[in-house]
Nucleic acid binder design. Structure first.
Lengths: 341, 341
DNA sequence: GGGGTGAATGTTAGCGCTAACAATGTTGCT
DNA sequence: AGCAACATTGTTAGCGCTAACATTCACCCC
């Protein structure tokens, strides 16, 4: 009946102390119905007295379930990915799953498949891949589908369930907002060409312009970072035709704001600027930035929800992969104003 | 000799195909020396043919090692924690460890102990806790030390190994910089009182002022967010004695910059402002922000290094817990200038 | 040539747990 | 009373792997 020394207690120790078989302990732990209340209490007490904790490896070995979800994430310097990851984490924990995370520096197909391989060593039950680039999503579709995968931020992936923010809708929203303020057209500082978010925002921007019969200038591609926004902003500052700019993220918008300011162009008096992401800082830019907000927590929640559905009822898997789109929301601040007559 | 259908291959399948015992397969997998090269090649081929992957639960059950490190992180909206996490992740993967992450909303002792409990269910081998608040570090010291713990960003934790950036040195650096520019004294917008980073930065600031015989104004506490910097900045803008402000992070500095601008105070002509963190945006603030940079990746690397040492040679554990301090670095931009005569 | 040595491989046991089945006790109903 | 139905508990086997020991074989040295 003594507490074992030198090793942590196992089920048999608890059983001995409670005067039952180890199987009864297992039943208590798993909430099996047919256990007498009195027995259950005795087992519970023994568990607490010994500080017993079930061995997850042994359990996983026999149940063939590890309860671990693998997450492939990207460079969390960016606000969006970091927030999405946090949303995923909370949702997973709420459902009793563990998260094993690999973050990637480079977003290539190889890096993703290597990361998934690494996670497979740990016997993850399924994957959530933050897949902001076309190549990644396509690579995903080519993977052997031993375990379910959900892509997040994946645009219009053909063969993989996807959760993403409505980038097209967001781009449309931003552009409409500027057109409604009376601007003849809207220039666009876009993200890198191979990013799905960049593509979606371009598509929404283009649609709004075409619907309004406005001219469609060539989009100018940055790299998401403030510096590229600065460079392109400086370029636009010299063009008197430019009165409204839709920038594909807030960081580049910051750079653009700075370039315009340095060139003596007033925002929003001379030129209106709208961003995308609604990072915490954008409210305090000079001037406070009008932007489009994305609900990243919701994306995380839905991603985990989708994956767990796949994990727990593989039978109900729809023939065409699910696709869940979270709407974007316009946040109006100071950097946009009516066009001058 | 057929490939098993309906279940993934196990060691015995590989053994059969290669014509050896399962133990020999195990030896190949673990790089055991006494295996003939020819045998090894045959086993390797069988592994590849079957797409065999070792069952990590079975392995963990018998070796009593899961290879998983638990990480308790905080709200990754903030640049620092997010970067630290990423540094930890890369270092862990380089050493063959997996990471299981829990992110917390609230930084209380209870939340941390709950998170560690959750991770314990998964049989993590040790913990890295990002512990930016005093209560957390103190709570850590009280925990039963079944598994090693390393605190990151933990200031001067008494009983736990710690890796952190030299906050005091950073605060000193920032303040000296302003004093050397000829400012009579330096005001301080500090972080919340219970954050160790805030404390450290205050201490460095105070030391620099005292060393220089400068008056020490009361530090004004914000909450790290731009809005609080804005509020306090507006307050300081009205005081003609204020010519130099050290802000405890870049986000609050952004708010302060905005408040000063709105009050007609020019930066750096009228007032110099210095931040802390060197977030990617700060280079593009109006004006570009002088700040103090922290090497978060290095913090992550050292944290993992320390923990793995503890894991792999518990014998060498020094009597007093290790403490590793990463230096901070001054980044000079435009927001600071010599005091006017 | 016999016995020691070491390399290469096989055999066995058991890590801690859950699933399946077996063995009780307990109740209700005719 | 007697039996079925069910609730409660115990017993056994085995998940896939590694550690420890056992075995075989080749080689070397006196």
């Amino acid at each position: 009946m003594s507490v074992p020394v030198g090793r942590s207690p196992v089920m048999a120790d608890v059983a001995r102390l409670a005067g039952v078989s180890h199987q009864t302990v297992s039943r208590v732990l798993n909430g099996h119905p047919n256990v007498r209340a009195e027995t259950q209490a005795r087992v519970q007490a023994a568990i607490e007295e010994l500080g017993y904790r079930r061995n997850s490896s042994a359990r996983a070995l026999v149940t063939r379930r590890t309860g671990v979800i693998g997450v492939v994430a990207f460079d969390t310097t960016h606000y969006g990915p970091a927030q999405t990851l946090s949303g995923i984490e909370h949702a997973a924990r709420a459902d009793g799953y563990f998260l094993s995370v690999v973050t990637l520096q480079t977003v290539t197909r190889e890096a993703v498949s290597e990361a998934m391989d690494y996670l497979a060593q740990q016997s993850v039950e399924g994957y959530i891949v933050i897949a902001p680039k076309r190549a990644v999503v396509e690579g995903l579709a080519g993977q052997p589908a031993e375990r379910p995968v959900v892509a997040v931020e994946g645009g219009e992936a053909p063969d993989v369930p996807v959760v993403c923010v409505d980038q097209v809708g967001g781009g449309y929203l931003a552009t409409r907002h500027l057109l409604e303020l009376g601007h003849r057209t809207v220039h666009h500082i876009a993200g890198p060409g191979d990013w799905l978010e960049a593509e979606g925002r371009i598509a929404g921007w283009r649609r709004a312009l075409e619907e309004a019969g406005a001219p469609v200038p060539a989009p100018l591609h940055g790299d998401w970072r403030p510096r590229s926004g600065y460079r392109i902003g400086a370029q636009l500052a010299g063009d008197p035709d430019v009165t409204a700019v839709f920038v594909a993220n807030d960081q580049m918008a910051l750079g653009a704001l700075r370039a315009l300011g340095e060139a003596g162009v007033r925002v929003p008096d001379d030129v209106s600027v709208i961003g995308f992401d609604d990072i915490p800082e954008s409210e305090f830019f000079t001037p406070p930035l009008t932007t489009v907000a994305q609900d990243f927590s919701e994306v995380g929640r839905r991603g985990i929800g989708l994956l767990i559905d796949l994990l727990e009822e593989p039978a109900t898997a729809p023939s065409s992969p699910a696709r869940s789109v979270v709407p974007a929301r316009l946040v109006t601040r100071v950097s946009t104003a009516p066009a001058r007559a």
